[in-house]
Design a protein around this nucleic acid. Structure first.
Lengths: 234, 234
DNA sequence: CAAAAATCTTGATATTTGTCAATCAATGAT
DNA sequence: ATCATTGATTGACAAATATCAAGATTTTTG
């Protein structure tokens, strides 16, 4: 593994407070691999053998039932995924595929669990990470149940804008069909939701979004840290 | 606190493997209280000061945004709630109210966090509890996104029947309006979903449910441990 | 570069779900 | 027991969202 990658992982909140011997042991047991785009990394139902760390690229977490699919999250560098299944030693509830060519570190779940018992700083960080993951899922569920399609899109756009530092213009980071699935609607409905948002201060041109009237969008969306996964909501 | 209640708490997976001194310290710091029905125990947005343990009665976890409300879960004895907010020392994302007269133990969050650092068995149990909570929320979100209203009700009824030991008949444990909100629909839609399920082996009479054709219901619902959460709403 | 494939948009239409209003049924209070 | 309140159901209708089909646009591939 490259020194730079090792440091990126080391700096994640999950690993930041580990003792060096424990971190080294964990990294030593890990595999660093590059996967092409559109590769299925994990299939829901399989037992969780590895904690995954995305170093480069992007990974989609999705789920399916019968012939229906839905996107649950997109994981971008540098971040871990499926910690809960690893800690429980249980089957994955979601599948994962690369969206782009991605560099991913695989840490054996058994070593993660061992580190939890050996290193208190890591145990603390694990609980913080799981708790925040839990809370973000509560927000996602609240969002799905309390807002309609147009409001969910508006809230997403508002949040993106805030995360980018409160800028008015930005580029969508993923395909619209993926965004639609994540927000719990069809691509057609997403298209129409974008059109409906023109009356609420949002201009769209291809992948480029411009918030022409932040006050109007904010009034529609009523952003709220209890609903929106927010780094930056005033 | 009554000896019996203390033992009930002691036997919860979360507390089972604590050392006795740690458990005693935690319980000593706790308050045991009885609340009347329909009392608001927690309001979303407040900082989490207590881990709650329901000993008797039932508690509804719900959320609201603008003028809309939704039920997120019903907690029945003996179980804890809002562990994640306590561990993060963060604002509650959900409100809580008693559905019936309830006996509830309040454990100061600061003591819970201290116990996490002092007692490894408790730390392990905390992570297991949070992970399972996380996974149940993933199931809830998948259910909302992948199934329609009729399928969600069918899956719920199937799960209830399984939890009761595979029986054909049982009584709904909560008001239908609560169930409707939990399942993400209006009471009217729930009523119509019940009617629609008559063609899929479900008979309803007031609060009494009879599964007249388990095979038909199962075919509709396609129950699946990756989707159906065991005992989220009892 | 051109052809092919995939994504996105739009219109027409269908289905699902919500809203409103009325009624019925159950429950609790006096 | 009777009245009042709350919850459940039903019908009529409206709104939201999905589906299907056709083009338009973009991306990928040979």
């Amino acid at each position: 593994m490259r020194e730079e990658d090792r440091n990126d992982i080391r700096n994640l909140p999950l690993f930041r407070n580990m003792t060096s011997p424990c971190f080294d042991a964990l990294i030593h047991a890990a595999y660093d691999q590059v996967f092409p785009a559109q590769l299925e990394l994990i299939r829901q139902g399989e037992v969780a053998n590895f904690l995954h760390v995305v170093l480069e690229g992007a990974v989609e977490l999705y789920a399916n039932w019968q012939d229906r699919d839905t996107t649950m999250a997109v994981v971008q560098p540098v971040a871990t995924f499926i910690l809960a299944a690893c800690m429980r030693d249980a089957p994955y509830l979601m599948s994962a595929r690369t969206l782009q060519r991605s560099r991913i570190v695989l840490i054996p779940a058994v070593d993660v669990r061992a580190a939890f018992s050996r290193d208190h700083g890591f145990a603390l960080a694990t609980v913080q990470e799981l708790s925040e993951g839990y809370r973000n899922l509560v927000r996602h569920a609240k969002n799905l149940k309390l807002r309609n399609a147009r409001e969910r899109l508006g809230a997403y756009l508002w949040q993106r804008s805030q995360d980018a530092g409160g800028v008015a213009g930005f580029v969508l980071p993923q395909e619209k069909r993926l965004l639609a699935s994540y927000l719990g609607m069809t691509p057609e409905s997403l298209s129409r939701a974008f059109k409906a948002l023109r009356d609420h201060g949002v201009h769209i041109d291809g992948m480029r979004v411009t918030i022409t009237d932040p006050a109007a969008l904010k009034a529609l969306v009523q952003p709220n840290t209890l609903l929106d996964t927010a780094l930056n909501i005033p």
